[in-house]
Amino acid sequence: MTQADSTDRITAAWGTGAAPGGRTGGFLGLRGWGRDGRGSSTWRRGLVIALLAVLTAVLLAFHAEVPNGVGNLGSLLETFLPWLGLAVPVLLVPALLRRSATALLALLLPAVLWANLFGGLLTDKSGGKGDWTVVSHNVAADNTDVPGTIRGLVASDAQIVALQELAGKALRAYETGLADAYPYHAVEGTVGLWSKYPISGVSPVDLKMGWTRAFRAQVATPQGPVAVYVAHLPSVRLKAESGFTVDQRDVSAQALGDAIQGEQQKKVLLLGDLNGTMNDRSLAPVTSQMRSAQGAAGDGFGFSWPSAFPMARIDQIMSKGGLKPVDSRTLPRDGSDHLAVAAAYRYSS
């Protein structure tokens, strides 16, 4: 037998799953990782899977470059950006079944990029007890259990509570139900603020909507005054004919950002339903100047909507100035389609 004949036999054996000497590999061993029945090597198989992996990596790395000109695709992508990570395990299965080394190497790209973007959110960043706790909750105009929502808010032991989508009989129920726990409150339009500390300087913030869905107030905490903004930015819609409709929300986000930028008080809190995530570029007028409690002190993504299966954190607690978030979490589900979000703050100089 010539050396060439011997080499051909070894190559054929490895391609059919038999290693030299009669040994065979298991599912993740040597079997099938050579050439397949059509002569394709492990480096030539799974190219479509590899391309999908690279596309996922490109979207993660360059999501800010996806244009908003058509259907606001950029904002839509950024709203659900963490979920792109699911592409890695989904593509891993066919990559292994195809025994494609190319696909497996390509999958490292989105895996590393996702870990770089969101891996830090998976660790518990809480830092002990705060001076006081705040809660923000879109209680929903069609809340199916207002008494239960009130009980949950009182049980949170928060010192400051901001509510959105207040209207009609429900508003009166919240005013009555929260009165004992929170002796101070202010309501402007459909948003309200309840506090254990005195509230003053209440003034509406014009979100360019034609009615009031935001205001600014000053809360006299034991550690000093804090400017508190309560806001409910316009809703967004996903429609087949027009895509992700966010124009009115973006106008209101700019107006809210301008108001916060002009704030004279050093310590500032923003509580509300912003109908957008911290990743959404269109909320930059707000997010560029404030710190997210969830990002700084949370444990996990803290998704708040929809409450039945949370997929995005559109309810935000943010701060700037000498306010340090030391804890962030969501509260148990109640009669709203949103989860309430809570954060504890430590007052620093």
Rank of each mutant, 00 (worst) to 15 (best):
K266M: 01
E263H: 07
M311P: 01
A296Q: 14
S282H: 04
G243T: 02
Q289R: 13
L256V: 09
T277A: 07
S319D: 08
R313Q: 09
L256Y: 03
R216G: 11
T245I: 10
G322R: 01
I314Y: 05
P222A: 12
A220E: 15
G257C: 05
N275C: 11
A308W: 14
I314S: 09
Q261H: 15
V219W: 09
K324S: 12
P325C: 11
R281S: 12
A214C: 08
V286H: 01
Q264Y: 00
V226A: 10
W305L: 07
S242Q: 14
P285C: 08
Q265E: 15
G322K: 01
A255W: 03
Q265R: 15
P225C: 09
Q261L: 10
V246G: 00
V226T: 13
A214Y: 00
A214G: 06
A297N: 10
Q248N: 05
R313H: 01
L256S: 10
L233I: 10
Q264K: 14
T277P: 07
K267A: 15
R237H: 12
Q223K: 14
P306Y: 05
K267H: 15
S235C: 08
R291H: 08
V246H: 06
A231T: 06
S288K: 09
T245F: 04
Y229F: 15
L283S: 06
G298T: 10
Q223P: 03
F244Q: 01
S282Q: 10
A231F: 04
I260Q: 06
P234V: 05
Q223Y: 08
A217Q: 10
M318D: 02
G298E: 07
Q316S: 09
Q254R: 14
G262C: 06
A217T: 11
A312H: 02
I314R: 06
N279M: 05
D280E: 14
G321Y: 00
Q265G: 13
R291C: 01
G224R: 05
L271M: 13
P325D: 09
S282E: 07
A240E: 13
P325Y: 05
W305V: 05
Q218I: 12
T221P: 10
G272H: 06
F244V: 01
M278C: 03
L283P: 07
L323T: 02
V286P: 06
D273V: 14
R291Q: 13
A240K: 14
T277S: 15
A253T: 05
Q218F: 02
G302I: 02
S282A: 14
P306F: 07
G322S: 03
A217N: 04
S288D: 14
Q254W: 03
S292C: 05
